[in-house]
């Protein structure tokens, strides 16, 4: 009985009310704004209430909150579709207008259709997107192994070159804060790797001293990461969580309405 109440409530709140709202909102701009606020209020409030009200229709295995979680997974999948549509719109416009770099948009679209097509083929043929029963790669996995992975790795590997160049040109002790950052950064960089052993490698008599100093430097590095860094990170995480909570409350209560994308007077 409880389960049915939960289902009925979800259908009412997230199907009937929005549909009625869209229908009535055609002639009433004010109503068009209020119905999404109502949907957002219930979508945000139900999971919170379910944490504190142990009722089966709310938090039970098939209650309203778990069902909203399942819906969320589906909504996430639709977000990918939205991304695909966005890429298609932007790229086709760029190609049609021959804007700067338009040949790259062709490459992007070919990549999108080839990879997406290989994925859909894997689903339709029931071969999946990893390996075939005989161990060979499916078309999707082949594209991933031969194109996607090397390209991603290459782009990220370029970072090492720019970091070294930036360290040379931009990492300066311009003021007290920058000097502290520079000193701590240098210590952590030296302490996270066996730097002293490496530097002492050509001088065997220095190696035992280098090993001892490296151990001490390693401990100092761990202290920096554990204590000042750990404390600062805790503060940042707590601050960000409080900020996110306050923003969530503003959205649930309808104070924050930017996400609706409404025009003036709506």
């Amino acid at each position: 009985m409880n389960l049915e109440f939960g289902r009925l409530a979800l259908v009412l709140l997230f199907a009937i009310i929005p549909v009625v709202g869209i229908a009535l909102g055609i002639n009433s701009p004010g109503l068009r704004a209020r119905i999404p606020l109502l949907v957002a209020f219930f979508a945000g409030a139900i999971p919170i209430i379910s944490l504190y009200v142990p009722k089966k229709f709310l938090s039970g295995p098939t209650g309203m909150s778990p069902r909203l979680d399942q819906w969320l997974i589906i909504v996430y999948a639709f977000a990918i579709l939205l991304g695909v549509v966005n890429v298609l719109q932007n790229s086709t416009r760029k190609i049609a207008r021959r804007e700067s770099g338009w040949p790259f948009s062709i490459v992007l679209l070919v990549g999108l259709f080839a990879t997406g097509g290989a994925g859909i083929y894997g689903a339709v043929s029931r071969h999946g997107i990893t390996s075939l029963p005989d161990g060979t790669a499916t078309p999707f996995k082949w594209i991933q192994d031969q194109f996607f992975q090397p390209l991603q790795s290459t782009i990220f590997a370029l970072l090492a070159f720019f970091m070294a160049s930036a360290a040379f040109r931009a990492f300066r002790a311009r003021n007290t804060e920058a000097t502290i950052l520079l000193f701590a950064g240098g210590l952590v960089m030296a302490g996270r790797v066996p730097l002293l052993e490496f530097l002492a490698a050509p001088f065997p008599p220095l190696q035992p001293a280098a090993a001892g100093a490296s151990q001490a430097l390693g401990k100092l590095t761990e202290w920096i990461m554990d204590t000042p860094n750990g404390a600062a990170q805790s503060g940042i995480i707590i601050g960000a969580a409080l900020g996110a909570s306050s923003m969530a409350i503003r959205v649930i209560l309808g104070i924050e309405r930017g996400y609706l994308g409404l025009g003036r007077g709506e």
Partner: peptide, 22 residues
């Protein structure tokens, strides 16, 4: 880690040279 150690040494050296010059 061998490569990482060498590149850390180089970056520290770069930072030192850059700051001495500055």
């Amino acid at each position: 880690m061998d490569g990482q150690t060498v590149i850390h040494a180089v970056i520290i050296l770069f930072i030192l040279i850059g700051n001495i010059a500055y």
